[in-house]
Nucleic acid binder design. Structure first.
Length: 424
RNA sequence: GGGGGGAUUCCAGAGCGGUCAAAUGGGGCAGACUGUAAAUCUGUUGGCUAAGCCUUCGGAGGUUCGAAUCCUCCUCCCCCCA
């Protein structure tokens, strides 16, 4: 199966320029995707582009990841309703470096002629003078052409700065530069990038007479219409500092059946046969959530490693599975802490626990698990508070008897909100 | 510049002198069901020393035994005419 066929059955092609498939069949082709370094970690929204590069590399072509040190300084108007804030040069440098580290996990940068490379457009844009840019790039495309792009049209009502208007030229020039310097003939990205990419192919055609191609994937959606890749806590990041491996694993595990059937094709490398077999099996017994588990496992291991995956799995079993007070109390402190990495923590004086604390004060005053005593009373009445996995009522008194490892108390508000209280 | 309408608890939006911590809907949070899902149903949604009390209805004053409700001024928003 060739690269385009591979992406096609995986549902990863939204639009493809005629001739692209032929080009890929003709020779080893270099292709790139651009990544905006707006933060010092990638989030799972970036993963689609990265998987495109991965498949590209597996098909024997050469992937380039373009980290937009320069374009990141400008801001892409595509899909944005408001003018972007500019990032400082220093922040961008830091972000670019961090993103490079994450890309190493996905692509092979070592072996063979088609090893992946990272390029930073700041390297070739930084010395470009304004006049030089106008003469070399601006001259070749008309404002009429640029204004016809959807990304620009949509912003004409609300306004966009000259800087953002120029964005497509800068990105277009990137493509031209890579075309000339690295024989890069394909740019990929999300469907919102189509306009920017075609500005590039047009620029290449007019300036060099050469032919370059474009391939974009559809916007990843969720069946319920909400935005993909977001939780209540915000973006799902690849960096464990922002999204713990446990939460990362949970994100994939909690995807709906319908979404997961699409996602597993996009985010995992399972073969078509494997996925079809798993999907079939999943439909037979949806409650087992085989697909979600397979996807969550595959992607958590790839991003965080085997060990972190196992801890996340263990944590999930303790929290949602057979976990009881007994298993909880047997848990070594190290495991407990890693399982609850990222859950809110509160400190309580050990001397106070010796004396015993009424559960209402414990929830509302000693900790901030509930926002007020009124809320604490309501929650207790509704049966939504558990201490060490056991439901408690409003007469419960918290004392040292509840301490796990003589140090921690696990509190649940509802089913999914965990808090760890530490005795000092 | 002239005329009119409005600002209410997370949001939308009732209330127009006491019965208002304020209808209803949405959202949120919980409970049941379940697959850590969806759908559905139920409860709850200012605070407290809690059958009571305190702070809330754009801001500042005032009328009244009593104001989210009436009056005055201020701020902001919307609409119409010029």
């Amino acid at each position: 199966m060739n690269f385009v066929e591979e992406l096609r059955w995986r549902g990863m092609i939204h639009d493809i320029m005629p001739g692209t498939e032929e080009q890929l069949q003709k020779e080893m082709t270099t292709a790139y995707v651009g990544i905006d370094p707006t933060a010092d970690s990638l989030h799972i929204g970036h993963l689609v582009s990265i998987m495109m590069l991965k498949h590209l590399q597996l098909a024997g072509h050469k992937p380039l990841a373009l980290v937009g040190g320069a374009t990141g300084m400008i801001g892409d108007p595509s899909g944005k309703s408001e003018e972007r804030n500019l990032l400082s040069e220093e922040v961008l440098r830091h972000n670019v470096e961090a993103i490079k580290q994450q890309l190493l996990k996905f692509l092979d940068f070592e072996t063979g002629e088609n090893r992946a490379e990272i390029v930073n457009n700041y390297d070739w844009m930084k010395e470009f003078s304004f006049l030089g840019f106008l003469r070399e790039v601006g001259k070749h495309l008309t404002v009429n052409y640029m204004m016809a792009k959807d990304s620009v049209k949509k912003r004409l009502e609300t306004g966009l700065s000259f800087t953002e208007f120029t964005y497509q030229l800068v990105q277009g020039y990137d493509y031209l530069h890579l075309f000339s310097s690295k024989n890069c003939k394909l740019q990929m990205g999300g469907s919102d990038q189509w306009g920017n990419i075609t500005t590039g192919t047009e620029l290449i055609r007019r300036k060099t007479g050469g032919e370059a191609f474009a391939l974009v994937c559809p916007l990843i959606t969720k069946a319920d219409g909400s935005k993909f890749g977001k939780t209540e806590k915000g973006n799902v990041w690849l960096d464990a500092r922002y999204t713990s491996p446990y939460h990362f694993y949970q994100f994939w595990l909690n995807c709906s059946d319908e979404d997961t059937e699409r996602y597993i094709k996009i985010f995992s490398l399972f073969s078509r046969q494997e996925i079809e077999a798993m999907t079939e099996e999943h439909r037979q017994a949806p409650h087992l959530r085989l697909l979600q588990k397979a996807l969550a496992k595959d992607i958590t291991i790839r991003v965080h490693g085997q060990e972190e995956y196992e801890t996340a799995l263990e944590a999930s079993e303790i929290l949602f599975g057979k976990g009881t007070t007994e298993t909880l109390k047997k848990l070594p402190e190290q495991v407990l802490l890693s399982v609850f990495d990222g859950v809110p923590m509160f400190d309580v004086e050990k001397s106070e626990l010796d004396a015993g604390i009424g559960v209402i004060d414990f929830l509302a005053e000693k900790t901030a698990i509930t926002q007020s005593k009124g809320e604490a009373r309501r929650m207790l009445k509704e049966g939504s508070i558990s201490i060490n996995k056991e439901k408690v009522n409003d007469e419960f008194v918290v004392s040292t008897a509840q301490l796990i490892n003589n140090r921690h108390i696990l509190v649940q508000r509802g089913k999914k909100n965990y808090y760890l209280v530490q005795a000092r």
